[in-house]
């Protein structure tokens, strides 16, 4: 009796080992996020504790209560959006040029684009600071210097992501478009760009989170301005306000929504209707 039962259990375990292991990995990966979500509802003793003391909606209703929190989040979002926008346009065009056109120095350009990715951020950040100071911009450090720096480091990631997509793209598709009377601009708009799009979108998402997240380069070049990572870093010294968890939860939900939305969109588009 027991032998049969234990073999049954072992058999079940054997059949589901991959599933169980996968769930454990997921649990491991998501634990920090669960904690963030949980802590966003925390009613701590003395408002600055790390223990879960009680459930409350206070943090959600008063997100902007901690001094400069919402301002820093606003700055971060503004910079991330603008830097991503510019870097995505520039980076996608650069990737297109580097894959579809032959020019002198293409190999060198390919190599150079890797450099910002490969060098340590602290080095980039301090050399940027030196650059700004040398250009007599020491007094102007703030939004625009951070914006310029972010565009710079996001560009490499975008070029590389979009390039990967483009090199997998059969040039005969563009030739077929040209053969079907589409000139260079129409070919780009009707064939190349739509086919590049998945690459561009993932590059933009990556760039947004890189920029939103960035601390080292930003901290060195932001002057008086405060971004969200800088705010968190600053308040970590005194004890983190629970509202940070609310911001974290919202960011997580936004990311989740975008991924699910993208998935849904693809499902709808690829569904055969005939």
């Amino acid at each position: 009796m027991t032998a049969v039962a234990s073999r049954g259990v072992r058999g079940w375990l054997g059949n589901h080992a991959v599933l169980i292991f996968g769930l454990l990995v997921l649990l491991y990966m998501f634990t920090p996020i669960f904690v963030v979500v949980l802590m966003s509802f925390n009613d701590p003793v003395g408002r600055l504790g790390y223990d879960f003391a009680g459930f409350t909606l206070y943090n959600w209703k008063n997100i902007c209560e901690p001094y400069q929190l919402c301002e820093s989040v606003g700055n971060s979002i503004k910079i991330a959006l603008l830097a991503t926008g510019l870097a995505t346009v520039l980076g996608s065009l650069m990737a297109y040029a580097m894959v579809r056109h032959y020019f002198r120095g293409r190999g060198t350009a390919n190599l150079m684009i890797f450099l910002p990715m490969a060098s340590p951020e602290i080095v980039l950040g301090s050399s940027l600071l030196a650059l700004f100071v040398n250009a007599n911009l020491a007094g102007q450090l703030g939004f625009w210097t951070v914006f310029v720096s972010h565009v710079m480091f996001c560009l490499s990631f975008i070029v590389i992501t979009v390039k990967a997509r483009l090199s997998g793209l059969d040039p005969r598709l563009e030739q077929a478009a040209a053969d079907l009377y589409a000139n260079e601009w129409q070919t780009f708009g009707r064939v190349t760009l739509p086919l590049m799009m998945p690459g561009i979108v993932s590059a933009a998402l990556l760039s947004f989170s890189l920029s939103f997240d960035d601390f080292i380069i930003t901290n060195l070049n932001s002057g008086q301005m405060i971004t969200f990572p800088m705010f968190v870093w600053g308040s970590a010294q005194k004890g983190i306000p629970m509202q940070i968890n609310v911001v974290g939860t919202i960011m997580f939900l936004l990311a989740l929504g975008m991924v699910l939305g993208g998935l849904l969109l693809r499902r709808i588009r690829e569904r055969p209707t005939a």
């Binding site: 059969d170 005969r172 598709l173 030739q175 077929a176 064939v191 086919l195």
Partner: peptide, 11 residues
């Protein structure tokens, strides 16, 4: 042209 590889637009 009818391409040897078809070259249909996948999107």
């Amino acid at each position: 042209t009818v391409f040897q590889s078809y070259a249909l637009f996948p999107h």
